[in-house]
Design a protein around this nucleic acid. Structure first.
Lengths: 194, 194
DNA sequence: ACTATATCGGCACGGCACGTGCCGTTGCAT
DNA sequence: ATGCAACGGCACGTGCCGTGCCGATATAGT
């Protein structure tokens, strides 16, 4: 058995940390692999051996940053639970360090399909599944109409928030999310509850 | 009268065209001002004199491309009119040449606040105003509840489509937009019509 | 008609980051 | 003890950056 030593000098982690440091300091556009190598105290090969490009390195660094998981509570009240979760998400994404990093990551995803795919696989997809699972529970409890398409609901719930974040770049506030949520749920309840 | 010659060599236009050509060929990341200058048959100074950066040049080139204006008809049926307009928008943005250019532009807007501001001022803002104007007309005709916040409606209408376009990068189809529209309007109608 | 001024294409420059070699070293696995 | 893979450091050629200078051209003012 090739038992790996318990504390291998974790170059990968050091490089990821240096990448995020520098990205926050100078922005993605001015981020260079040379500077990352210097900051991390590492040869360039050690970076190129692990990631094929600056974009891939940055994507991996951001997605490995392990922000607090955006889980949903289940108190039995779908509106309250979605609100609780989205407030946490807004607090995370709306300010440094994660906010600007995540914005830059989604920006780069527009230029590189591989990055877009990775972001969806590693972050958006799991988050979508959690959301839909919570919506399904609400539907089973009769808080959402039986025939409502939950993947459509997902688009209509996340969409307006990302629209503000990425397109108009107005601040995404708790209040804004609350208003979107109220309007959305108004159209989702079973007919006899409207 | 400073009568300009009948055919002034329109460097600005030539440079914009070369920029879009090259951007479609190699993508924004590999676009270089040197290549644009060569393609346009122009000195680099002539570009730097007009635009401060590659991003600014690209932004201006895309936004000056004058796609067919995405106007709203007013047949008196808000759902039909929004559908007509969004189908045209989807056909425009969903495929080359405008689709990839617009995606790259919004990507770059995540790295450069100036570009984000310009996109909003020159494209998103006017489009928002047209949409809200059409929604106001519908509200005046009693098709939308009096107290519905139309700027919220704007976020909830554009958001899910941009979410697909920029985040999940699933294809934005007419059918998807139709379903969003139907769900959205279900929550917007005056109460006695629900 | 003559001249001043602005803009132009072309060329060259120093600087930076790219991505890839090579070299000598380190440290784990046999 | 030996083999081997990964390492840090260094150097290289390449591409593009943004700027300066040149001579040519065309317009505007006198």
């Amino acid at each position: 058995m090739t038992d790996r030593s318990p504390t291998p000098p974790d170059r990968t982690g050091v490089i990821r940390a240096a990448t995020l440091d520098l990205a926050l300091e100078v922005g993605f556009n001015r981020l260079s692999i040379e500077a990352v190598a210097a900051r991390a105290g590492v040869g360039k090969h050690t970076i190129y051996r692990r990631w094929p490009s600056k974009g891939a390195l940055f994507m991996d660094a951001v997605l490995s940053a392990n922000p607090p998981a955006l889980e949903y509570p289940d108190t039995g009240d779908i509106e309250a639970d979605l609100r609780t979760q989205v407030h946490a998400a807004i607090d995370l994404v709306g300010k440094p360090p994660f906010g600007p990093l995540y914005r830059a990551l989604l920006g780069e995803a527009q230029h590189d399909p591989d990055i877009a795919a990775a972001v969806n696989e590693r972050f958006i997809g799991p988050q979508t599944q959690r959301t839909i699972a919570r919506l399904e529970a609400a539907r089973d409890q009769g808080q959402i109409a039986e025939d409502y398409d939950l993947s459509l609901a997902m688009d209509m719930w996340s969409g307006p928030l990302y629209y503000r974040f990425l397109v108009t770049q107005e601040p995404v506030t708790h209040e804004h999310a609350d208003r979107v949520l109220a309007a959305l749920l108004a159209g989702m309840r079973p007919r006899d509850q409207r």
